[in-house]
Simulated scan of single mutants.
Amino acid sequence: MAGGSFVLPKARPSGPPYFSRNQVANVLHQVAVLLELQGANVFRVRSYQNASRMLGALTEDLGELVASGDIFNMKGIGKGLGSALTQALSEGRWPDDWVNLHTDTPPGLIEMLGIPGLGPKRIKLMADELGVDSVATLKEAALNNQIAPMKGFGAKSQQRMLDGIELLSRFRARRRLDIGLRYGEAFQRKIATLEGVHRATLAGSARRRKDTIGDLDVVVAVDEEDHEAVANAILNLPGIADVKGAGDSKISLILDTTIFDDSFTVGHIDANVLDAIGGDDYEQLEAGGTIDAQVRLVPP
């Protein structure tokens, strides 16, 4: 999960309800993670995790459940959480303790959540024992071999953190449009050939031809009964450096240069041309550059 995504959404002016079900589910997930970073009681953390999953899979209208008071009758929603959700959806205000969690948590700790494979428990442990409070101080501690001796970590974990930091630094930077399109079109072509896929379309910044692309959005038309098979097939495509999240309808990935066919090369581009158009970005294509990608499975 990327640390930069830990932001409480603003209330929409057309409410109530002032927030969507997905927004509420995501905020509950954020609260659970931030509580874990603080070392909160495991049962309290779990209650938010369970509520997030439950709302994420909810088929009923959350706004109507809140308006009718039926939210309090739902399994896993106690009086406190039900009141918090009622306040958010009916008044457009997140509970003060949720707001404080977001504002009081050091940004560096949230930043570290973006490192693949590194969760809040280990971040808190390293913060408490080593004073690690950012990606930069984590990298310094790892390079100084301070993490490996810690109980439950070891040399392999330490190296994975360094690898994750390198991966994070490469994928979080925005790409110029032409570079992003090379990744996007290669990924789109591979998805389009999968059995069960009606069509695959680039969306977001790539479709709008923005000057730069932060991440790729690919919309894939699939029959509902084929969602699971297609999602699994996408996860097994070459070129996936890491999986940040995966469900039947949405997949979040990091792509690397193995997404390109073996014949792909930029070596034929004249050095002067490379310099004029931004040689560093093109060199990254061959040197192991990455880009974030989101895949959404939708009805045909």
Rank of each mutant, 00 (worst) to 15 (best):
S205M: 10
R182H: 03
Q159G: 13
L235C: 05
A155D: 08
R175T: 05
A141R: 03
L253D: 04
L35G: 06
I115G: 05
T212C: 07
P9W: 10
G39D: 04
T105I: 11
S90D: 10
A40G: 11
G131W: 14
P13K: 06
I71A: 03
K210W: 00
N26Y: 01
G92N: 01
R175F: 02
Y282Q: 04
G279L: 04
E224A: 13
P106L: 13
F19P: 08
M74T: 06
V99Q: 13
E228F: 10
L28H: 00
N26H: 14
A271H: 01
T105S: 12
G78P: 00
D270N: 14
G119V: 11
P120E: 09
G180T: 05
T86G: 12
L237N: 02
V273M: 03
K190G: 02
L237F: 02
S83A: 11
Y183F: 15
W98Y: 15
G82M: 05
G267R: 07
D223R: 11
A241E: 03
D215H: 07
G114S: 14
R182D: 04
L81I: 11
A276T: 07
E64C: 05
S90M: 12
D292N: 06
L125T: 02
N236P: 04
T193S: 10
K156T: 14
I277Y: 03
F43V: 06
P116I: 14
D280Q: 09
A32M: 07
A141Q: 13
G108N: 09
I123H: 12
K210T: 05
L89H: 08
G76A: 09
D97F: 04
D242P: 00
E36W: 00
A148L: 12
V42L: 07
T105K: 09
D280M: 14
L143W: 06
A25W: 03
P107C: 05
V222A: 02
T103V: 15
Q49R: 15
G278T: 02
S90W: 01
I291F: 03
F264R: 02
A276W: 02
K139M: 15
T193M: 06
L162D: 12
G247T: 07
A206S: 14
S252V: 13
G92V: 09
L85I: 11
A127I: 08
G117A: 14
I147G: 12
N145V: 10
R44H: 13
K79F: 09
L89Q: 00
D242F: 09
R199M: 03
R12K: 12
F43A: 08
N73A: 09
L65K: 07
L143M: 12
H102F: 15
K250W: 09
L216H: 12
A173D: 11
E195A: 05
S157V: 13
